[in-house]
Structure formats: C-alpha cells, structure tokens
C-alpha cells in the first residue's frame, strides 16, 4: 500500500492517539482491508506499540486483516431480518458464490460478510452490496441480485 496515503490519513488526525480507531477505519476504507505494513506504519508514526494497533484491529469486527473482494456482499443479521428469513438468504448467497460467510472468492470478486443491524428493518431481509441496498430479498432472488455484479454491463440503477 502507498505509505503516503497512510501518512496523510494520520496527519489528518494530527497524530492524535485517540483517533487510532478512526485512522484504521480510514485506511480500511481506502484499501478495503488493513495491510500489515500499514498497521506497522501507524504504530511507528503515532508512537504506540504495534500490539495496541493489532488489538484494535482484531477486537472490532468491522476490520479485516485479509484482502477483501471487489464487491462486499453484506447480509444484515439483525433480529428483524433474522425473523424474516435472513439466515436462509445467507445460506443461499453462500451456496451461490461457493464460499462461506467471511470468505472471499478466489477471483477476489466477492466477499461475504454479515452485519448485526443497519437499521433498515422495514426492508428485511436486507442485503447490501457495496453501497446498494437490496431490500425484501427472498432466496429465489439471490441469483439475480448477484448477477448484476457478476456482469457489470447489466448493472443499472
């Protein structure tokens, strides 16, 4: 990863130690995951032990230490989505992509993740792909939904 970008992010927060979490979030937003070199750089410049950076990166579930796919397929597992069938939708997405929750397809195209709740409960079961919300998804619609991202030419609206 381009270390200048890491430096710029740290600079934005004035090397403020309390912004450690925010710095890591911004790096992940930039890179899609937290590369080890970037974490080491953060520790060095912000003058905190690497163990502390590492403990934050592993404690909070929004961080990934592995490269993630081009499209992040996030299935909401909040209670409202759960009672409306989210586990079945997750199973179907896993079946369709041939990977388990938390994994990335070998072509680095898709990563499956779950989230505890995004607060769009009226639309449950809900799948968020990148920043697009797909609401009221039933298992029979999963294939079609993923299709839009497999063949970007069809990706309209």
């Amino acid at each position: 990863m381009d270390m200048q970008k890491v430096d710029a992010i740290i600079e934005k927060y004035n090397k403020d130690e309390t912004a450690l979490l925010a710095v890591l979030q911004d790096i992940q937003a930039e890179k899609n995951y937290l590369p080890r070199e970037a974490m080491e750089r953060v520790a060095e410049i912000m003058e905190v032990p690497f163990s502390r950076v590492s403990s934050l990166a592993t404690f909070f579930s929004s961080f990934s230490l592995e490269p993630r796919g081009e499209h992040i397929v996030t299935i909401c597992m909040g209670t409202a989505c759960h009672v409306r069938g989210a586990p079945l939708v997750l199973k179907e997405v896993e079946r369709e992509l041939g990977i388990a929750n938390g994994e990335t397809t070998s072509d680095l195209k898709f990563t499956i993740e779950t989230v505890n709740c995004v607060g769009a409960c009226a639309l449950g079961p809900l799948v968020i792909i990148d920043e697009n919300y797909h609401g009221n998804i039933s298992t029979s619609e999963v294939e079609e939904m993923l299709e839009q991202y497999q063949n970007p030419s069809k990706q309209e609206g």
């Binding site: 309390t18 979490l21 929004s62 961080f63």
Partner: peptide, 8 residues
C-alpha cells in the same frame, strides 16, 4: 464525533 468499530 468518534466512530465505533462494530463492537456491540
């Protein structure tokens, strides 16, 4: 503002 990291 401080953003959380996804820990309940």
């Amino acid at each position: 503002i401080n953003r959380g990291g996804g820990a309940f």
